[in-house]
């Protein structure tokens, strides 16, 4: 219990120090708008990104109940997830493509590179699928059953 109280007291102190830094460094108009952005960050996570993952996850689980799909579901799920996370990070790069403050900022063709990355992930997913298929057949002497 002592550890927990200690952690909580230090935590509140450190957090208040951060709050004081904010209050002393930001002008009132910025201080008013910051909570809106903080709220927006929570909305984006808890009401867009995570529900999207939950939704796609349950669709994949439902789809996987079909005949013989249990072999594919792992590869499908991982591929979708990797495509999703890399695309999320690519969004700002794609939005700002060609708008760098100088030619050394954002120098790539991000649209081409993003498509290449996603294609690589999908090819990797297909390869992973065949790899696990071969391995499971080899280990079980499988004749198509479960």
């Amino acid at each position: 219990m002592k550890t927990r109280i200690g952690l909580a007291v230090v935590g509140v102190g450190v957090g208040l120090w951060g709050l004081w830094l904010l209050l002393s460094a930001l002008e009132p108009p910025a201080l008013v708008r910051l909570p809106i952005w903080l709220g927006g960050a929570v909305l984006a996570d808890d009401f867009v990104l995570v529900p999207l993952t939950v939704g796609v996850g349950s669709l994949v689980a439902r789809w996987s109940a079909g005949p013989d799909r249990h072999r594919t579901v792992g590869a499908v799920r991982t591929t979708l997830l990797y495509v999703g996370i890399t695309s999320l990070i690519a969004v700002p790069l794609l939005l700002r493509q060609g708008k760098g403050v100088n030619p050394t900022v954002l120098p790539r063709d991000y649209l081409r590179d993003w498509l290449l990355l996603e294609a690589t992930i999908i090819v990797g997913g297909v390869a992973g699928y065949f790899f696990t298929l071969r391995r499971s057949r080899a280990s079980s002497g499988d004749i198509g059953g479960r």
Partner: peptide, 10 residues
């Protein structure tokens, strides 16, 4: 950053 570390400790 400080606020995150504080909230994380709590």
């Amino acid at each position: 950053a400080w606020i995150i570390v504080g909230a994380l400790l709590v």
